[in-house]
Simulated assay, not measured.
Amino acid sequence: MTGRLHRRYPQLSRVLLNHGLEVAYSDRGLAPRALRDIRTAAAAGRFEVEDLDLALAMTVGAQLALGSLLHAQPDRDDAKSSDLVVRGLLRHFGMSADEAARICSLDLPDLDMVDAAVR
């Protein structure tokens, strides 16, 4: 969902891209949630993660690179690109290709709900 928000909120995306590495190590916002999700998946045996902080850094780096690419290539399909990045991360963390593809095919929350929260 985060990858799709770069197109939906381009100004907010640019702020994230300009300050993303600072935000990645904040104790507020998306970083602690991502770290919690990675930790939970590792504890449940779904991820093979040796270093939680490094896993978070890789996740943040992938999302920032995706956002930058989407801004540089306005015709690029943001949904397809987001799914490819997520599938790659899930596979890197030890998930099978089939399971990563299955997860990426699940419905996302309604982005209109995100619109209401952002406003």
Rank of each mutant, 00 (worst) to 15 (best):
M1Y: 09
M1G: 13
R7A: 06
P10A: 11
P10I: 06
P10K: 11
Q11M: 06
L12N: 14
S13A: 15
V15M: 08
L16P: 00
L17G: 10
L17K: 11
H19I: 06
L21G: 03
A24S: 15
A24Y: 04
Y25S: 14
S26R: 09
D27Q: 12
D27N: 15
G29P: 05
L30E: 08
P32W: 05
P32K: 10
P32T: 09
P32E: 07
A34G: 02
L35Y: 04
D37V: 11
R39M: 02
R39Y: 03
A42K: 09
G45Q: 09
R46M: 12
R46L: 13
L52Q: 11
L52D: 15
D53S: 13
D53L: 12
V60H: 00
A62C: 06
A62M: 09
L69A: 14
D75C: 02
D77F: 07
D83F: 00
D83V: 00
D83H: 06
V85K: 01
V86I: 07
L90G: 06
L90S: 01
R91C: 09
H92M: 07
H92C: 02
F93K: 05
G94R: 07
M95P: 04
S96L: 04
A97R: 15
A100E: 01
A100S: 11
A101L: 01
I103L: 15
C104M: 12
S105H: 12
P109D: 07
P109H: 08
D110I: 05
D112Q: 14
M113D: 13
D115M: 04
A116L: 15
V118K: 06
R119C: 11
